[in-house]
Each structure stands twice: as structure tokens, then as C-alpha cells.
Design a protein around this nucleic acid. Sequence first.
DNA 1: CGGCATCCGAGTAGATACTG
DNA 2: CAGTATCTACTCGGATGCCG
Lengths: 131, 131
Amino acid sequence: MLSGKLKKIFGHLDPNNPPIVCPIRDILSSVTDKWSILVLLFLGGHTKLRFNQLKSLIYGISSKSLSEKLKILEKDGYIVREDFLEVPIRVEYRLTSLGLSHLEQLIKIAEWASENMNTIIKNRVNNSHLS
Amino acid sequence: MLSGKLKKIFGHLDPNNPPIVCPIRDILSSVTDKWSILVLLFLGGHTKLRFNQLKSLIYGISSKSLSEKLKILEKDGYIVREDFLEVPIRVEYRLTSLGLSHLEQLIKIAEWASENMNTIIKNRVNNSHLS
DNA sequence: CGGCATCCGAGTAGATACTG
DNA sequence: CAGTATCTACTCGGATGCCG
């Protein structure tokens, strides 16, 4: 039973008195989409990256989505944007200490996903009657 | 530098040869939305829960969204659904061993979010000129 | 180079009502 | 009780084109 931990996480568990700020809904969920996770992982692996480097590494993302995600991550304080005021433009992104600390969790969860993905793919096939 | 870990996670890092299956995009991202995380956390805290119990705990979710998320989690093998074939209907959800192992990561990340949420809320205020 | 503006279609969320 | 059906509103993502 981890109701103790849950209590610590949520503050309390009474649906009739929901917390003002939920750590999952209001803090975490804005950066747990696939693009944000990939941005953070790749920045962790390269210490600093330019916009188009990120865009290449995260194959499939559009400029629009990338710049939106970068803004959210910057606003929450996971990354910093450095504009070198050069021509042509040069901008670099890097993790903050908050971002680095979050990255530790992300790496563990990514490793977990990597180790278990074959199992999950099999589950999807076996459970294709659902959905 | 954690390019070693990244390589282990992604298989390789060459954007010209993207992996067929990306652990983040294709495995993780379907269960990292706020509702799925909350479902898994609450199931972890209660060992088993009925549909409407979950709905009450996860204040704000609709029946429709909850049943959709439950189906995805069941299909990927994180949870099992047990129908007791009683009248009135009784259905219970519980974590599988895969779900339990995933839960360990989730708890750590939830605790991280809980510890850092005040910092992040402050960041959002200070960076409100962005966005 | 590093974006932003615009448009568009697909998917999602929520409210409400209904059912075995 | 545990959902499904339906409808609407809205967001999101991708594509395209442009700009300093």
C-alpha cells in the first residue's frame, strides 16, 4: 500500500476537496508529451543544441511544434535559450539545473520503456480485440 | 555526456536512419497524458478499484475519457479488467506486473514534480513575458 | 538560420442523455 | 454500475509560405 506516498504526492486524496494545484495535471502533464521528452533527452545528451540540430534529431517534428515546445520548456524553467545576436542567427538551447534534475527521472523512464517495449508491442498484438 | 545511454535507449541516433520503433514516441507517449498517469498512480495506491471509484478519485475526468484511457492501458498490458458478471455490474481494475514495474518510475517522477512544483510555478510567473 | 503567420483537417474533450 | 452514443467545441499537429 502506498497511500502514504500518494498522500505526500497529492497533499490529500479527498475528491470532495481537490488540491488547488495537482502536480500531475498542472505541473507534469505540460511536458510529458513525446516531443518535450525527446527535446529534454537530446539536450541532455549534447549539452547544447541549435534549433535545427534539435529538429533533425527529433525526426518528424515540425518547426511550429518544436518552437512551441521550446517556449513551454523555457517558461517552466527546464531549458534556457541563448541568442548570440549574430548574422546569420545563432540560437542555442541547453538544460538548466531544474532540467538536469528532471532529466534523471526521464532517463530512467526511457530506459524502462526501451527494456519493455517488446513486451508492450506483443501485448498490443495479443489484445487487438480491444479498442 | 550521456550519449552512451541515449544510444542504448534509442538504438542509434542517426536522423537519416530513424529507428522503426521509438520507445518514447511509440511506447511511452500513449500513457504519459495526465489521465493515464493518474489512473496508474491511484491503482497503485489501492490495489484494485472500480470504474466509478476511479472516476471519483480522478476528479474532473468524464466517463468517456476514463473508459478510453482504461482501454489503452489494458491493451498495452499495464492493467487488467475483471468483470464479475454480477447484477448490478461490478468491474474491477488492477495493475499487472508490468503496470507495477512502470508505477515505480511514475512514483519517482510524481514525487519529483511534487517537490519542484513551487519552483516551476514561480518560473511561470517570472517568465510570463514568454508565450 | 530560426523562427512566425496562416490555414486546415483530425483528433479529443466535455456535456448530456441513455442502456443492459 | 459501468459504461456507450451523440453532438459540439476546441485544440493540436502538419503543411506551406514568408521574413529579418
